[in-house]
């Protein structure tokens, strides 16, 4: 066992969503929590973001949405990760997520959903837990 592992998190937005204020703020807050944030910003494609997750060896991915198309995008993104052998990388979503959509997101395996009012400790607790579970299951380290 060495020092505490540094969490690598890919943050970005898919499709035409341009509301970057939230995700930039989160990037800064996570930086202050000791996270290495790979910031992808807006206008990402599903395959492009999946490539980033693989090449950056992310422990977790955060997607931010302020448009209503998120169910479609999250499903497409999960499918893309799975098809490329990275379906085990945890995904969290944030932004304007309607309460009715929590169940369908959960069915896609999205456990971290952080809308307005979420706190940094909540997000960090989730990220640490999810990243640990992912790394230990991935088991190149012990």
């Amino acid at each position: 066992m060495g020092k505490a592992r540094i969490i690598r998190c890919v943050l970005g937005m898919l499709g035409t969503d341009v509301h970057t204020k939230g995700i930039r703020t989160l990037a800064q807050l996570l930086r202050d929590e000791g996270v290495e944030v790979v910031y992808l910003g807006e206008h990402n494609t599903v395959p492009g973001m999946a490539s980033a997750v693989i090449q950056e060896d992310a422990d977790i991915v955060g997607l931010s949405f302020s448009t209503a198309a998120y169910l479609h995008y999250v499903r497409a993104f999960r499918d893309e990760l799975i098809s490329r052998g990275a379906g085990d990388v945890p995904v969290m979503v944030g932004g304007m997520i309607h309460p009715d959509d929590r169940a369908p997101l959960a069915e896609m395996g999205i456990e971290g959903i952080f809308g307005p009012g979420s706190t940094v400790p909540e997000i960090m607790a989730f990220m640490s837990r999810a990243a640990d579970a992912y790394r230990n299951a991935g088991a190149v380290n012990s």
Binding site: E33, Y39, A52
Partner: peptide, 19 residues
């Protein structure tokens, strides 16, 4: 230097090559 975290933003400028 304070938290050890980072915002890695170089890749953001190279998005045309992501796929």
């Amino acid at each position: 230097p304070k938290s050890g975290g980072a915002v890695l933003g170089d890749r953001f400028r190279m998005s045309q090559h992501y796929s």
